[in-house]
Amino acid sequence: MSLSDDRPADYDLADCWDPVEADEADELADPDEFLRVCAELTGFDVPELRATGMVDEHHRTVLAHRVRDEHALVHLWYVGAWPGEAPSSTRAHDQGLVWRTFRATPPGAAAPGHGSWAEAPPGGTPAIEPSPAGTPRAGTPRPEAPRGGDGR
């Protein structure tokens, strides 16, 4: 059914393909069976998995690997990538179940987006007041001021 838990960290799934296990992998060729198995493994129900919008993409990924590895299936759904590979798309990463589990959004994936820290929030005031022309902004080193009354 699945690969052993004592496999090395750098194992290659292509080297693990077993024609006998291919029959078990072939059962995942049916999209409904694929979803049923994934729901059982991930703890999310079928409608929740469908809501990610990743069913077709993840199904294609599983079929491309031709091996049924429960650990890899869970990894795929939670992280958005087959173990040892980059996510198949940015959307796969952003829709990973890990974010739903933590009730969080992936960094940089949701509004307000890149550069939002440069603007004041709606209805708020900026953390640093804009500096008048010629005046250094906060955090900019200022020239040394003369000390004492004699100008030294």
Rank of each mutant, 00 (worst) to 15 (best):
P107C: 13
D94S: 05
L73N: 06
Q95E: 07
H58S: 04
D10H: 05
M54Q: 11
L28V: 08
R66P: 08
R50V: 15
L63T: 10
P31Q: 11
H58G: 02
E24H: 12
D32Q: 13
G84V: 06
V98Y: 07
G139R: 11
D12L: 06
T61C: 14
P130E: 06
A81M: 04
T140E: 12
A86E: 09
V67K: 06
A111M: 15
A118F: 11
A127T: 14
A138Q: 09
T61D: 12
E27S: 11
G43I: 00
P121T: 13
P83N: 04
D45C: 01
T101Q: 10
C38R: 02
M54H: 03
D26T: 12
S88N: 00
P47Q: 08
P121L: 13
E129V: 14
A14R: 12
W117R: 09
V20T: 08
A29G: 14
R60E: 15
H65T: 06
L76Y: 02
W17E: 09
L3N: 08
F102T: 10
A86V: 04
W77A: 04
V98K: 12
T125F: 14
A9M: 02
R100A: 11
Q95G: 00
V98C: 10
L35F: 09
R91H: 00
P136K: 04
H58T: 03
R7W: 00
E129T: 13
S131C: 05
D12C: 07
H114Y: 10
